[in-house]
């Protein structure tokens, strides 16, 4: 068996593209503005309607919006890029944990099982909450709220995809799996990428013709599994669906495993080189990777090459 060993070396810088130089970078302690007009939302000089909308934004960005006020100066508290939304200024840090938003699709891991609620680890600042009342049984069967039911639920989920239902005031999320789209995940691999790299799209369940399904969680957890069958329609017999969901562990073919591993390496490659993850970029990366074996995709020079190809193709389209 051949072994590939190499010495550590500094990684090549990511090629910067047009328009980046104009960004305003700040780090903790930097004064962003001394113009108090930007903080006007504390006073009542703006029309009522505007206050209402701004209030929502303030609340929205309240956690980790990257600034604080000292005297009459607005000062950055994280290193990042200054963003202005009307009168509101926030600093977006380069790396951060997942900040939930209502409607996001997340992939998470159950960490704690309680009586009425479960804790889900979603790469957020606090564990998310999955109320048992927000869980649908496989096959959409209605549940009775009993002690037996709670006990039975413990057998059900280990890793799960869910949607953010609401945000609590301290920043923790409440999840639900109230649709057949969401629920327990079975055979597959989990890849973790920075949450900021996942593009918000119409659908986060990507079916690739090469025979794999990728679930791009908004929280940066990416689940890759063999192609799932079409969504069961409502006219399906309920008992059939239950058996489909509670089937014994599948035996995955070697070719499927390779596809999954290849896609996993593609996700890692794109994330390492700062390319946004969505269906097109992932498809391009997969196409470009076909010239190499799965194992070779871990080599930095090949990763660089693939990332460059993807970036070029995306630029051409734009």
């Amino acid at each position: 068996m051949s072994v590939d060993a190499r010495l550590p070396k500094r990684r090549k810088k990511i090629a910067s593209s047009v328009g980046i130089e104009s960004k305003h970078i700040v780090s903790p302690g930097d004064v962003i503005t001394e113009d108090t007009g930007y903080m006007r939302f504390y006073e009542f000089t703006v029309p009522v309607l505007a206050i209402l909308t701004v209030c929502v934004v303030i609340k929205h960005h309240f956690r980790g919006h990257g600034t604080y006020i000292d005297g009459d100066k607005l000062i950055a508290s994280v290193a990042g890029v200054v963003e202005r939304v009307n009168k509101l200024i926030c600093v977006r840090p380069f790396k951060t944990r997942y900040n939930g938003e209502v409607g996001d699709v997340v992939v998470g891991r159950i960490t704690e099982v309680g009586q009425k609620r479960w804790k889900v680890e979603t790469f957020s600042k606090l564990d998310s909450v999955l109320l048992l009342s927000s869980v649908n049984l496989p096959g959409g069967e209605l549940r009775r709220r009993s002690a037996e039911d709670e006990l039975m639920m413990r057998h059900f989920l280990a890793e799960a995809k869910a949607e953010v239902q609401s945000l609590y005031s301290d920043g923790s999320l409440s999840l639900h799996t109230r649709s057949l789209k969401y629920g327990k995940l079975r055979e597959g691999t989990l890849v973790q990428v920075p949450p900021s790299l996942v593009k918000r799209c119409k659908t986060h369940f990507l079916n690739f013709p090469c025979g794999a399904t990728v679930i791009l969680g908004n929280n940066g957890y990416v689940w890759i599994c063999p192609l799932e069958e079409e969504e069961p329609t409502l006219t399906d017999n309920q008992t059939d669906r239950i058996t489909a969901d509670e089937r014994p562990p599948q035996n995955i073919q070697v070719t499927d495993r390779e596809t999954i591993a290849r896609l996993g390496n593609c996700v890692v490659t794109l994330a390492d080189h700062g390319v946004t993850l969505f269906i097109t970029s992932l498809q391009y990366a997969y196409d470009a990777s076909l010239r190499h074996s799965v194992k070779e995709l871990l080599k930095p020079e090949i990763q660089e090459e693939i990332a460059e190809v993807v970036r070029q193709r995306l630029l051409q389209e734009a």
């Binding site: 090629a15 910067s16 593209s17 980046i20 960004k23 780090s27 380069f94 790396k95 593009k199």
Partner: peptide, 19 residues
């Protein structure tokens, strides 16, 4: 420290803007 952070930030910029 500030110089290091700002140099590092320049490197990170593409990942934030997504290309």
């Amino acid at each position: 420290q500030r110089q290091t952070v700002h140099e590092f930030s320049q490197e990170c910029l593409p990942s934030l803007t997504g290309n």
